[in-house]
Design a protein around this nucleic acid. Structure first.
Lengths: 139, 139
DNA sequence: ATCGCATACGTTATAAGGTTACGCAATCTG
DNA sequence: CAGATTGCGTAACCTTATAACGTATGCGAT
């Protein structure tokens, strides 16, 4: 496995490693600007530094972008080869995010896209609702 | 059906009708600011006028927001009751969008969310790839 | 070694997308 | 008619993302 003992993936540049660590240490998704703020102490100053690092990290499947939130999360199972068919459940109240991998869903999406005449390159699946903790207790 | 002969849904305010028409007449998705620009001739001046209209239109299921594009499209089957489980296929080359409704997908998403401990309120499913016309011809 | 190329970096400025705050007008409801 | 609700218009502002430019560094081929 391409990691050191400290859990940092190998082969990252300084900025990439900083951004990845910020996300890995966060409880939930962070916006690019929040990441920037958290890394000012490390010398980062401009949005582009963060966006460039994020771009590479997303390419490598180490970070996911949550489109409906304009935010980013560290991938919770970076070992997995395929990261472009991942679904996310997002709690509308507390913001908790769960990463879901499901082959059946992936197949259904591929089939649907194919039937509509599209090749499927990557998919965005974001489910909004309430997590167990935030759900009002049942009668 | 709640429409006039001209295809405009009934019960819309002026701004809502303008925004809806702009989207219905467009070939593809439009950003809020593009809508605004197209409606300046009709007297719209500020982003908020468009966003407010969009909010209502989305609530009523007449318009969908494409999160991965930060853009909006008119719903292609507004008669359908349920608009919160719609999937979209988006061509990365020409920008064409197809709206896909699929009960099996909807069920799978509901199941997945449930298994992860979430209630499912609404889902975002956006499939990126190439449409038939843009796909390089096979051998 | 050094040229050419690719990749990352840093900085400034700016574009694009979205919201807050405030007040007025019309409509509905009791 | 009082109060509530909904929509409207304007200005200012905030957040998110990219363009444009130049520098530095590693690396393979001549």
């Amino acid at each position: 496995m391409s990691r050191h003992a400290h859990g940092q993936p190998a082969g990252l540049t300084r900025n990439q490693a900083l951004v990845h660590r910020a996300l890995a240490e966060a409880e939930g998704p962070l916006s690019a600007y929040t990441i920037l703020d958290r890394l000012r102490g490390e010398g980062l100053r401009a949005p582009l530094q963060v966006y460039r690092a994020l771009e590479k990290l997303v390419e490598r499947g180490l970070v996911h972008r949550l489109e409906s939130l304009n935010a980013f999360v560290a991938c919770s199972h970076p070992e997995t080869a395929v990261h472009d068919a991942t679904a996310f459940a997002i709690c509308d109240k507390c913001g908790t995010v769960s990463e879901l991998a499901d082959a059946r869903l992936a197949r259904r999406l591929a089939t649907l896209a194919g039937e509509a005449g599209y090749t499927l390159d990557r998919s965005t699946v974001e489910l909004r609702g309430l997590c167990r903790a935030c759900r009002p207790a049942a009668g």
